[in-house]
Design a protein around this nucleic acid. Structure first.
Lengths: 141, 141
DNA sequence: TTGGGTGCAAAGCGTTTGCAATAAT
DNA sequence: ATTATTGCAAACGCTTTGCACCCAA
């Protein structure tokens, strides 16, 4: 069985980067988690990893397509990319900031391929983000 | 005939804000333009408007739903929101950064309303952004 | 062994803020 | 006249960088 961490190690080596404790630690902080702010990640690993290194690791991970950033209101958050967890989208509550994930809607791919074709683009990636008011915030007011 | 600037003035007054030269200037810098970085806007109006004021105006505009921000790679860009120019989405070329707009795809609203319902969210807004390689960059390589 | 990776502290840069001057209603 | 708005310059906070040390291959 291949774990996500094996996949990470393989990916790093393939691109000529070392598999280090620092990189594994940051990866674990991201694994199986909702999108997190840089600050949350830094706090989570701060016992063993320096702030500057977190930035460097995230930079590298993004360059290698291991993490992706997501705009949540004014700030961005980070999460593992599609290869490391199933491709999905988000609904964000405008009131409490709660983030819920949902799977790729069925017809979306077809919809997007048509658009890309019309615009003469070769499609590489896409984001679909929804904002609204979540169930519990609807009750509150 | 009602121009976009009339609409802006009306919107400001309705919410209890003054219609000032500064706000009009920033608005004009945004009008009929592709998404711009904060820096581009600042440069464009710098003869008459101070940097700090641009930030304050953009803040206000965003709070009032007049502008929206858009994540383009690492940085964000700003453009007028749906009320001031037709609701639309973007395709961004990963190679040259060119941004092309396209209209709301036909079935998208229905698709999204179903998702929102399933997640018990009241839908308020959404973004759909595509990334790919544009026609002229496809030729280059 | 040796070149990439990391910690540390300092620098950089986009953004925000306090305050006095100015303009809008 | 009164209150909101703006310019200015300083402060702030997130992010990046230079350098010496350390560790993976």
């Amino acid at each position: 069985m291949t774990t996500a961490q094996d996949l990470l190690a393989h990916r790093l080596k393939k691109q000529g980067y070392s598999v280090t404790a620092t990189r594994l630690t940051v990866f674990k902080a991201l694994e199986n988690n909702d999108p997190q702010s840089m600050d949350e990640i830094i706090k989570k690993v701060s016992i063993s990893v320096n702030r500057a290194s977190v930035y460097r690791v995230i930079d590298l991970f993004e360059k290698l397509g291991i993490v992706q950033r997501l705009q949540i209101g004014w700030k961005y958050k980070l999460e593992l990319s599609n290869e490391f967890q199933e491709h999905h989208h988000h609904v964000i509550c405008l009131q409490c900031g709660k983030i819920t994930s949902f799977r790729e809607p069925e017809n979306l791919d077809y919809l997007l391929s048509k658009i890309a074709e019309r615009e003469s683009f070769v499609l590489k990636n896409h984001q679909l983000e929804l904002q609204g008011i979540c169930a519990s915030c609807q009750i509150k007011t």
